[in-house]
């Protein structure tokens, strides 16, 4: 057995996501060590016969396969074996710094979040930008992905009903997650419904996705993001 992982993890729950995918969900609180296993298993699973794609989520992994190229039951067993035998993804990824203007246009919810947390807008901005975030998983459209590392005092359940917010590389938080949403391409959607809270907007940010680059995406799971407080508009 080639398992040398310092971090012992219970076997994940494996359920079908339809006729051509499995969802692996890890047990326990959301954390980085678990996510390092998720990345590693996702990478290794990509080489299994019949697997067509893999996608890390927040402490979970989606594995897509061609059911006519592999036996689903056999694949399920292979995935559980990988979970035990695959060494965690080791080193942290590259660090990217992103300047943020908190509040104002694009930071519509800063005041709301401050009031809910009995803090000043500046305290929220300082706390948010004090942490280092890890790109846990790709986002719903090309961008900076789902970020983990939000300081616990800023945890806030997502809204019951979505509201319309600009999507111009805005910094959002919800639950214990953070993300940066924006039009992935020039001319993309400029606003959209979201249950997340918009704290601010990136200043002079690099394009997260550009088809003329190879690879086209700027960040990959494991990369780290630090938000630099540019200014706070109250």
């Amino acid at each position: 057995m080639a398992a040398h992982n310092a971090f012992e993890l219970a076997a994940p729950r494996v359920t079908p996501m339809g006729s051509a995918a499995f969802l692996l969900e890890s047990e326990g609180p959301m954390c980085l060590p678990t996510q390092r296993r998720i990345w590693a298993v996702g990478q290794a699973a990509g080489d299994l016969k019949g697997v067509t794609d893999t996608q890390p989520g927040m402490n979970n992994l989606l594995v897509l396969y061609d059911p006519l190229a592999t036996e689903p039951e056999a694949l399920q067993a292979q995935l559980l074996a990988l979970w035990i035998a695959t060494p965690d993804t080791p080193a942290p990824g590259k660090l990217i710094e992103l300047a943020v203007r908190y509040g104002g246009d694009g930071g519509e919810d800063l005041l709301d979040v401050a009031q809910r947390k009995s803090m000043t807008p500046r305290q929220v901005a300082e706390m948010h930008s004090s942490a280092e975030y890890t790109v846990f998983a790709p986002g719903v459209i090309p961008g900076f992905g789902y970020l983990f590392g939000l300081p616990e005092p800023l945890f806030l359940p997502r809204r019951d009903a979505p509201v319309n917010r600009p999507l111009l590389l805005n910094v959002f938080i919800a639950g214990l997650q953070c993300n940066v949403s924006g039009p992935p391409v020039p001319g993309g959607p400029q606003a959209g419904p979201t249950g997340w809270y918009s704290l601010g907007q990136l200043i002079d940010a690099p394009a997260p996705f550009d088809l003329t680059r190879d690879p086209p995406g700027l960040v990959e799971p494991g990369d780290r993001i630090r938000f630099i407080l540019d200014e706070v508009l109250e």
């Binding site: 996501m17 969802l23 969900e25 989520g57 979970n60 992994l61 789902y146 359940p157 009903a161």
Partner: peptide
Amino acid sequence: QEMRSHGIVCGVVQVPP
């Protein structure tokens, strides 16, 4: 319970609140 974001596929039947 609070749900964790995960990959989804065509055909998934999701149930909002």
